[in-house]
Amino acid sequence: MNATALEPAFQFTLSDWNTRASVRTSTHDYRLPNDVMQQLETRHWFPPAFLPYLAHPAIEAAGRSLLHRLTARHLVHFLDYTTLLEHRIVNRAVEVIVHGELPVDVPLSMKTAALQLYTDEGYHALFSHQVAEQIAGIYAIGGRPAMPGRITRMEALIARTAPEQRPLTGFLLGFVSETIIARELLDVCRDNLVSGVNDMLRDHLTDEARHSRYFTEAFHYLWRHLDPQHQTFAATTLLEIIETFFEADEPWLRKSLRDAGIADSTVHEIIDELTTGQANRRRARTGSIATLNALKKAGFFAEPHIRILFVEAGLIDG
């Protein structure tokens, strides 16, 4: 068998986009139900299991009303973050593919699918904003959208990157984001959520599952065609990006807890527990499984010096 026969068969398509993308086919209007308060007797705004600080004795003792207020605040912040992420990070990653800014030439099929993905992400930003506005109105959540710490860190990474490497950095940010968010949405959608929120997140998940596959394949193609210098740059940058995605948003969380009436002593305890290096590494290792699997599939860890980097960071086993 010749070498060509062993090459991966890259397709770069969003399967049946015309009949499956939520922007083309969804019938949901993403309005919260009139009986939302009744639904909250058995449902959630956001899965409490995803927010370990809700298990603090002071918060548990305060009852379900505070739990709903805190999960609503978290969901609004997550949706505001999603709107910014889709516009400033993911669609920027798509632009570098479409407009030939990467250090390797890419197939036309990759560019065409990227344009479809760009359309999807604009719609995700729209419905995330629409749902966030409704929930913020119920709980009188002001001062938004607060700039998420994750977006600030990602934009800072791009700003300090040499101009000639920024397109590749932008693509890598999109790759990590899309492989992470598909897994996150899948886990979130397993909870019993308020209708409207549930409809929106499930439509988002349906699209992101395909986006994750697309970015996985696009990274695989890119990795095989990068020269060693660009591969080394990509490896160190990916490590920083993954770590960035799992740092706690300390300023926002501190303000959210205080605005909800949580005592300063409790706020300090929660923040201290969430922001340790060990806690960050644990979140990164468990939360980036899909990204790490995509890297492995591309042969990323076949390079010993790259594997050592990720072992030392605690993301993979030696």
Rank of each mutant, 00 (worst) to 15 (best):
T4R: 14
Q11N: 15
S15C: 08
W17K: 05
N18H: 15
A21V: 11
A21S: 12
T25W: 00
T25M: 07
H28R: 12
R31V: 00
L32W: 05
L32V: 07
L32F: 10
W45V: 00
F46I: 12
A49G: 10
F50I: 06
L54A: 00
H56V: 04
A58K: 11
I59P: 02
A62F: 15
A62H: 13
A62I: 14
R64V: 12
R64M: 13
R69M: 11
A72F: 02
R88D: 01
R92L: 15
V96D: 09
I97M: 06
H99D: 09
V104H: 04
D105C: 11
V106Q: 01
L108D: 05
A114K: 00
L115W: 03
L115H: 09
L115T: 15
H124D: 10
A132Q: 02
Y139G: 03
Y139C: 06
A140I: 13
P148I: 02
R150T: 09
R150Q: 09
I151D: 06
E155L: 11
L157N: 07
L157A: 09
I158H: 05
T161E: 14
T169C: 13
T169R: 02
G170W: 03
L172I: 00
E178Y: 01
E178A: 10
R183Q: 15
D187L: 14
V188M: 13
C189N: 11
D191A: 15
V194M: 07
V197F: 01
V197G: 05
H204C: 09
H204E: 06
H204S: 11
D207T: 08
H211N: 05
E217R: 03
A218I: 12
F219P: 00
H220P: 04
H220S: 13
R224P: 13
R224W: 08
H225F: 06
Q229G: 11
Q229M: 15
Q231S: 13
A234F: 08
A235G: 03
L238W: 07
I241D: 04
F245C: 05
E250W: 14
P251Q: 12
D259S: 14
A260R: 01
G261A: 02
A263K: 12
V267P: 02
V267Q: 03
I271V: 13
E273Y: 07
T275H: 02
T275D: 07
G277P: 07
R283Y: 08
R285V: 03
S288F: 03
S288Y: 05
I289M: 13
I289G: 00
L295Y: 02
G299N: 09
F300S: 08
F300W: 10
F301P: 04
E303V: 15
E303R: 15
F310R: 04
E312H: 11
A313Q: 07
